[in-house]
Design a protein around this nucleic acid. Structure first.
Length: 272
DNA sequence: AGCGGAACCTGTCGGC
DNA sequence: TGCCGACAGGTTCCGC
């Protein structure tokens, strides 16, 4: 599911509801995606810790705990964090319950079980985070960076945008939306792009991601904020999922093609 | 270096 | 109604 704007939305929700709370107990319902794999060890290490900060890097959520410990979460396709003050019955998609204080429960819910929860001693130790490319909404997204990452490659620009080691956080929906906004065909290769096109791409990456964060992300099927409300950006999508519908700019039917076994949507007339 | 394909799981939807 | 295939926002591993 979630790409950078959705993860950012979740992080903001968690910052309001779980920071400075103490984890009083942990219950693991299904442990195939947790590290350490042993539920007992996972539970034991977290119990008693206080959540100091919740932040994001790429599509990872980072819980910094005290005493010194980090919980890295990746939602993959269907992962969710839900915070509630009610005491629900365990649902079959609930993977882990984190009891916070005496009043609140933070639920990690994941229908498809692709999501991961990993305990690491410190962020420096988290290899996955070290491998990530730059944050697209930071000052590090420069024309030079895009030139270095994209302009020497014969891979398609669609694939390059999905490559988390270059720019971190863009997924399949926003890759299509960004390329439409920049008027670049997903079939072009990195080394075919002109400097002007790279400039447009940089602008579109930031514009689309910021707009999606403003709308609390996209809820195509099951993305939900921490309070279980949907995001609204799906109402602003221009090409994703619009196969055969008229392009909002020129009325040409939007095309769907498969690249890297994943759908790309684009306007064959506007995007060259 | 970089590609395609499969795998990890479960659910939904559309066609017949 | 029921079965079957296609598809789903992500990542990783394997073989070429």
């Amino acid at each position: 599911m979630p790409e950078l704007p959705e993860v950012e939305t979740v992080v903001r929700g968690l910052q309001k509801s779980v920071v400075s709370q103490q984890i009083t107990s942990v219950q693991v319902f299904r442990n195939n995606a947790i590290t350490p794999l042993s539920s007992e060890l996972f539970t034991q290490r977290l119990t008693g810790c206080t959540i100091e900060t919740v932040t994001r890097r790429g599509k990872y959520l980072i819980f910094q705990l005290k005493p010194q410990l980090c919980l890295l979460a990746h939602l993959r396709m269907t992962g969710k964090f839900i915070v509630t003050s009610l005491l629900p019955q365990p649902h079959k998609h609930h993977r882990v319950w984190f009891q916070l204080g005496h009043q609140q429960l933070m639920i990690f819910d994941d229908m498809r079980c692709f999501g991961t929860l990993e305990l690491v001693e410190s962020l420096e130790q988290a290899k996955k985070l070290q491998q990530l490319g730059i944050e697209p909404l930071s000052a590090k997204l420069t024309l030079n960076h895009l030139k270095n990452c994209f302009n020497k490659s014969s891979t398609t620009i669609k694939s390059l945008l999905l490559d988390q080691t270059k720019v971190a956080g863009i997924g399949n929906i926003y890759a299509s939306e960004i390329l439409f906004d920049a008027k670049i065909s997903p079939l072009r290769t990195g080394n075919q792009l002109s400097i002007q096109e790279l400039k447009n791409l940089k602008k579109s990456i930031q514009k689309i991601l910021k707009a999606a964060i403003d709308k609390n992300g996209t809820s195509i099927s099951d993305f939900r904020k921490v309070d279980e409300k949907t995001g609204e950006f799906q109402n602003f999508l221009k090409v994703y999922g619009k196969n055969e519908l008229a392009c909002s700019h020129c009325s040409t039917p939007i095309q769907r093609i498969i690249q890297q076994q994943r759908s790309s949507f684009f306007c064959p007339s506007c995007q060259q």
